[in-house]
């Protein structure tokens, strides 16, 4: 699949934003976190900005962005439509919780419940995003039950890293934030490694033989493509990445997105606030870069069955 930058940016940015919303809700409901006004302002601003910019980026690849509202109508059948509906709904409790936290400096009682509602809707939104990909049978490497866990785990991990940075930057000293960020990042990469091992070990679901129905004659190979030039299908679905590059990029993603943030987030727990905030900021930047590589690979490594009609043996 062609790794379109708009979709890569959308899924990573909005995933982190929703993750941060989730942790704001969790902190208010389960940890009686004091409603520090400027922390709340910064955290909700970053979360809502990441979500909004991500959603806007995802409309950039539409042929008719002005009709985007129509995408909210088919929630009965379409995961993309469901994602749109839940994403819009999430803004309501999230906005109200932000008002309570920032303007009234309150995050208990009804405000905590609004935060919890925003957190639950955030989880559902990320799940819907993942299901858009996971439900596509034509892309066997996405059509596995490990895609949704990967998206949820990375949203929780990147949100936790942002939350941890905010906590240390505002000197709120929640002892658990660094450990939570480190643990969740490690856990997310464990899920991702399972996903990679599953897609690498999976038997081909479709082949050039099943795509043409000519397998009874022997090995099927493309003799002549329909035309000498390119076409939309090959541009959008025919992207190929060399296995050698894929392996190196996986290592880069794992180090930048996983190893470094885990060490930095865990290590920063012992530091004074200012130094800890600095280290946490590096962890956020590193994780962001690693996640962009991870998401690029998610698309670039996915083989669409259309390639079987253009010279690929198996998908």
């Amino acid at each position: 699949m062609n790794p379109a930058y708009s979709v890569i940016f959308f899924t990573t940015a909005s995933g982190a934003g929703y993750g941060l919303l989730i942790w704001l809700g969790v902190a208010a409901v389960f940890f009686d976190m004091p409603a520090h006004r400027w922390f709340g302002f910064a955290a909700f601003a970053v979360a809502l900005a990441l979500i909004t910019v991500g959603l806007l980026a995802s409309t950039l690849h539409l042929g008719h962005p002005e009709r985007a509202w129509r995408g909210l109508t088919q929630w009965r059948s379409s995961w993309l439509s469901r994602e749109g509906v839940v994403a819009v709904l999430t803004f309501i409790p999230a906005g109200l919780a932000a008002i309570g936290w920032v303007l009234l400096t309150r995050n208990g009682g009804v405000w905590a419940w609004l935060g919890a509602a925003a957190a639950i809707l955030a989880v559902v939104t990320v799940f819907c995003t993942a299901m858009i990909y996971q439900s596509l049978r034509a892309i066997p490497r996405w059509n596995t039950p490990w895609v949704a866990p990967v998206y949820l785990a990375f949203a929780l991990a990147s949100g936790a890293l942002l939350f941890h940075f905010g906590v240390r930057a505002f000197g709120l000293g929640l002892a658990w934030s660094g450990w939570a960020a480190a643990t969740l990042t490690a856990a997310a990469w464990a899920v991702k490694l399972i996903y990679w091992s599953r897609i690498d070990g999976a038997a081909a679901r479709s082949t050039a033989e099943s795509a043409t129905g000519l397998g009874h004659l022997g090995k099927v190979r493309l003799f002549e493509a329909p035309h000498t030039g390119d076409n939309y299908l090959m541009r959008e679905m025919g992207y190929k990445i060399a296995r050698k590059h894929a392996r190196r990029l996986r290592i880069i993603a794992l180090i930048l997105g996983g190893a470094l943030p885990v060490v930095l987030a865990a290590g920063a727990t012992q530091l004074p606030d200012l130094a800890a905030a600095f280290v946490a900021a590096i962890a956020v930047i590193s994780a962001g870069a690693g996640l962009l590589v991870e998401r690029w690979l998610f698309f670039a490594e996915a083989v669409h069955t259309i390639s079987l009609y253009y010279g690929t043996d198996a998908a």
């Binding site: 539409l62 042929g63 034509a138 892309i139 939309y232 299908l233 959008e236 679905m237 069955t305």
Partner: peptide, 27 residues
């Protein structure tokens, strides 16, 4: 008249039957 050109249908079709029109911005 209602297609937004999101291209998801072309991802979902295993056979490559969908054709995006870059100029009209619809499938």
């Amino acid at each position: 008249d209602t297609c937004i050109g999101c291209k998801l249908c072309s991802w979902a079709c295993p056979y490559g039957a969908r054709e995006y029109d870059y100029i009209d911005g619809v499938m």
